[in-house]
Amino acid sequence: MRESTGAGRSSGIRIQEVMVRRSPLFITASLYSAVPILAVAVLSAPKIGEPPLTLPHAPPGSAACAAVAPIRIEMTPTRRAGGASAVYEMRFSSSTFGVTVSEAGHYLYDVEVAVKGLPEKTGAVFVAWVATSDLEEWINLGPITNDQPIAGQVGWNKFIVFVTAESASDAESWSQEFYFSALSPSSRMHTMLGHGPFSSEPCLDPRN
């Protein structure tokens, strides 16, 4: 038997160092600035399928990996993006248990964002963000370029991934210059409140 020293309170789940912000002062402003994001994200459902862009960090080449892929979501461009494209991929963070969740039960995903064809923008850097769908919390994943994807870990039930142009890569909150956005798959969960074959049925009061 060999022994190694423990790592203190580490949970055993790899947590990347990312900047998380939650500030009531930011929220009002953020809600205004988020309108374009939400409009794009809600009106245009993210597409899962064959994207025009692939991430350079494919899983290590082996027979173990040949048949599988992470969830890959094509991001919706704004008019600013011109002909550029973006995609994000998510897969479970590594875990002993086959499914990776936090103590509170949130799924933990490794998310990687890549862009292609973004034009140079003088005095600005492109930054990838992840935010909860109520925009109460967000993470600056870091700067992103056509050559360099950016990755981080997400542990929220529903979230939005988006790319903005900022004056600094370590911006605490995003500006209004949005280029891409996409919802998490969980954001598309279907409500069963009266529609389809049941649209004429009286709905139960969900507060009861």
């Binding site: 509170a104 949130h106 969980s186 279907h190 409500t191 069963m192 969900p206």
Partner: peptide, 16 residues
């Protein structure tokens, strides 16, 4: 036992 339960009626997660 801590989970994020799904409420399909409202399409939401609820911590439990």
């Amino acid at each position: 036992n801590r989970i994020q339960a799904i409420d399909h009626y409202l399409a939401t997660f609820k911590p439990r």
